[in-house]
Structures are given as structure tokens and as C-alpha cells.
Design a protein around this nucleic acid. Structure first.
Lengths: 192, 192
DNA sequence: AATGGTAGAATGAACATTCATTCTATATTT
DNA sequence: AAATATAGAATGAATGTTCATTCTACCATT
């Protein structure tokens, strides 16, 4: 087995266990077993458990970012672009429940809190496609002139709730529901 | 110190530590210290750590439920009632950041996974002020005819995001922001 | 002195991490 | 080509730490 392959085995074993059981119920020994690898081997590929956890997060983020860009056309009206991105992201979440559960866990842990703080308060070239879209919308008076972070909350808060309910089986999201929810979020942020 | 007092000392020490550090970084010994009590004493008042954790959750739930009912006037128009409840709940969260952080932790843990928000939603016959309001709105065509759980997501998803950002110090919510957010949520669910 | 309640030390289980040893694949020599 | 040497990768038992929970000696009250 090649170096990269083994690394990926470890990453995906950890992703699966942590998503399903949480950080504390996913011991390194169990991750090693699931990856078909010795416990010590993990430490050849990752400095420690924290590093492994952060690495998984970064990889998921990369995948999600590239997934939602797909089919994005900068030439469309802003409303259509917003709805395209919103639906694309929710679609991704529904198709990758483990990824979503992992991100949730991460965000609700010290790991995620400090990362988020750095991202938002630090000024290190933190651009995102959504941020760009919101800024454009504010400039052109298509979107309410609110702090970006509030626009994020209005757009993604409902999405996360819906995704959670869906993965928990409390609701079976139909295409119609998704379209309606996207439109409702647009109505929440659009300028009247 | 009376029996009830000591019990409360333990509950509030645990609430504070767990809110700030998370379940696993809040050892029983530390809770005991903070409560000014021996470690073993906690086991006189609570069967084990799980029981303590669940008890805190139940007490918080009771407090929050009664707090949001305050000043609620069933005779007002539905929009005003919605905004009153929404702002009241966010206000409570802002004034009790520890309570909010605790609830968040709990929901994102094995403990809370089962309970979930059917409590607040009143899925199990348990009357809920929100559910009633949404149902009334749908009947009278003031609110979009969507599944209750979606209306819930649209209304409270943004609130949870805002509260999280606020308690993390990422945003300082002004009264104006809160009012605007409440109005935006109403716009998301109202019938056009 | 007997009772009831409490403190905090003792216990043992779970876990992350380390490290001495074994294995494997490639290079070097014959 | 076969035989041997070597680097570095992999292993998993051992270690030290952190906890939840239990146990015992002590204190206050009667």
C-alpha cells in the first residue's frame, strides 16, 4: 500500500468514527483498527490526534468549497446565484451526511471555535464566494445593509437546522422544500 | 448549608464549568471544588455524572420556557407576537450565555441526541407556544404553508447562529441588529 | 457514644502517546 | 541472478495521565 493510500485510510477511518461517535468516543486505537493499521502508525502520518482532527476538517472544507463552485455562473443575476449556491451546499450536505456531522462536531468544539475566531477577526485573506456575493449585493442595494456575519446567520442558520433535521430523520426534504427554503432565505436578506 | 442549597451549588458549579470547558474538561473533582464540596458528596445528590448533566438540562429548559412566556399577549397580531417571542428568546440567550452554551453542548452530544428539539417544537403532545403560533399563521394564510419543522428552522436557525457569534465575541449585537434580524426572520416565513 | 453526613484519598478503567523491535523494499555486492 | 545489507516504515505492548466512581476515616450533632 502506498504512503498516500495509507494516509487516506487513516483519514477516512477517523472521519467515519468521529462523525458517528464524537471525538471522545473515537480512540486512536479504534481508528487504527478501522484503518487496518497499527496504533503507532498514525503518529508517523500525523503529529497527534489534534493534528489529525484539524487535517480532516481542512480536507472537508476544500471538498465542499470546490463542490459548490460547480456550475456557478458569475454572469447570472445575484438572486439566482445566491439560490444556486445555497441549494448546492444543502445538496452536498444531504449527500454527505458524515461530512456534515463532522463539521458540526468540529464547530461545536474548542478546535472550531478558535479557528472561526481567527477567520473572522483575523484579516488574513479570508475570502469566500458567499462573502463576495454579500458584499456585491450590499453595494448594489440588492441585499440588506447588515454586517456580513448577520447575513451568514440568516442564510446558513436555516440550512444547518434543516440539514440536522434531515440527517436525524425528522424530515424527509423534498426538492420542493429545498427550493422554498432557499427562496425564504433570500427573502430574509434581500433589500425590499 | 441546607440540602437544597448544596444541591444548587453543585448544579451551578457544574453548569459553569461545563459551559466554559465542555463535558470532558469538567471533571467531577473540579466541579466539587468549585461547589465547595467533596467529590464524593456529588454522588449523594446525583447518581452519576450523566444524571447531573441531564438534570442541568432539564432545569435550564424549564427556565427558558417560562422566560419566553413573559409579557406574551395572545391578543396582538401574529407578526407582533412572533417578533416578541423571537426577540425575547434571543435576549434571554444574550443575558444567559452560559445557559446557551450549555444547551449547545448538550444538543451536540450523545446525551442530547435523543431528546432534540421535539421538546421545544412540542412534537409529543407537549403544547408549544411556537407550534401554536405557526399553525395559526398557516390557517390564516399569514405564514407560508410549510412543514412546521421548516418554519422552525427558518425562524431559529439564524437566532442560534447569531447567539453563537455573539457569545464567542465575534459580533456585538446592538438592539438595532436584533430588531432587524427578527424582522428578517418574519419575512422568511410570512406569506406574501 | 451513636448517628448521619461529608471530605478527599484510593481505585481502576480508558485513553493518547512513545519506543524498542520487527518487517519490507530497495540498493549493493558477488 | 542470487545473496546480503541497509534505511526507513510499521507495529503494538508499555507508559503515564486523566478521569469517574467508591471507600474510609473524620466531624458535628444529639
Amino acid at each position: 500500500m502506498k504512503h498516500t493510500e495509507k494516509r487516506n485510510e487513516i483519514l477516512s477511518a477517523a472521519l467515519e468514527l468521529i462523525s458517528e461517535q464524537g471525538f471522545h468516543k473515537a480512540p486512536m486505537s479504534m481508528i487504527a483498527d478501522k484503518a487496518g493499521v497499527g496504533a503507532g502508525t498514525i503518529y508517523i502520518y500525523f503529529e497527534n490526534k489534534d493534528a489529525l482532527i484539524n487535517e480532516i476538517y481542512l480536507e472537508l472544507e476544500k471538498k465542499i468549497t470546490s463542490a459548490i463552485q460547480e456550475g456557478y455562473s458569475a454572469s447570472q443575476p445575484i438572486k439566482e446565484r445566491f439560490i444556486h449556491l445555497w441549494i448546492g451546499l444543502l445538496q452536498y450536505i444531504i449527500e454527505h451526511p458524515l461530512h456534515f456531522r463532522y463539521m458540526e462536531q468540529y464547530h461545536n468544539s474548542p478546535y472550531g471555535a478558535s479557528l472561526r475566531r481567527d477567520r473572522i477577526l483575523g484579516k488574513t485573506g479570508n475570502k469566500s464566494i458567499f462573502k463576495d456575493l454579500f458584499e456585491e449585493g450590499i453595494t448594489n442595494h440588492n441585499v440588506k445593509d447588515l454586517p456580513i456575519i448577520m447575513l451568514f446567520a440568516l442564510s446558513f442558520g436555516p440550512m444547518v437546522f434543516l440539514a440536522r433535521d434531515h440527517t436525524l430523520g425528522l424530515i424527509k426534504l423534498q426538492d420542493g422544500h429545498i427550493t422554498q427554503a432557499a427562496a425564504a432565505c433570500w427573502e430574509a436578506i434581500k433589500n425590499k
